[in-house]
Computed example of a mutant assay.
Amino acid sequence: MQAKKLSSTNLLMETHSGLIQLPRSFRDSVCEECGWSEATFYRKTKGKNTFSNAEKEKILAVADTLLKSVWEQNNKLRGR
Results as ranks from 00 to 15, higher is better:
Arg80Thr: 03
Gly35Val: 10
Leu22Val: 15
Glu32Met: 05
Leu60Pro: 02
Asp64Ser: 14
Ala61Gly: 13
Leu12Ser: 13
Leu22Pro: 04
Ile20Pro: 00
Gly18His: 05
Ala63Tyr: 14
Glu32Ala: 09
Trp36Asp: 13
Leu22Glu: 14
Arg43Asp: 08
Asn49Leu: 09
Glu55Asn: 12
Leu67Asn: 14
Leu19Val: 00
Glu33His: 09
Lys5Val: 02
Ser17Lys: 00
Leu22Asp: 14
Ile20Asn: 02
Lys4Cys: 02
Glu32Arg: 13
Gly18Glu: 06
Leu6Lys: 12
Leu22Met: 15
Ala54Asp: 15
Leu11His: 00
Arg78Gln: 10
Asn74Met: 08
Thr45Asn: 08
Thr9Cys: 01
Cys31Thr: 06
Ser8Leu: 05
Ala54Ile: 15
Gln21Pro: 00
Val62Ala: 02
Ile59Met: 14
Asp28Ser: 06
Asn75Ile: 03
Trp36Ala: 04
Lys46Glu: 14
Val62Lys: 03
Thr65Ile: 09
Leu67Phe: 14
Asn10Gly: 02
Gly47Val: 05
Asn53Thr: 12
Ser25His: 10
Val70Thr: 14
Glu14Cys: 03
Ile20Asp: 01
Phe26Gln: 02
Leu12Gly: 09
Val70Pro: 08
Val70Leu: 07
Gly35Pro: 14
Glu72His: 07
Ile20Leu: 02
Tyr42Gln: 10
Arg27His: 07
Cys31Glu: 06
Met1His: 03
Cys34Asn: 15
Trp36Val: 05
Gly35Met: 12
Asn10Pro: 00
Gln2Val: 07
Ser29Tyr: 12
Met13Trp: 03
Trp71Val: 11
Gln73Gly: 04
Cys34Tyr: 15
Arg43Cys: 08
Cys31Val: 04
Thr45Phe: 08
Gly35Glu: 14
Ala63Cys: 13
Gln2Asn: 06
Leu67Trp: 11
Glu38Gly: 12
His16Arg: 05
Lys68Trp: 12
Ala63Val: 13
Arg24Tyr: 07
Arg43Leu: 11
Glu14Phe: 03
Ser37Tyr: 07
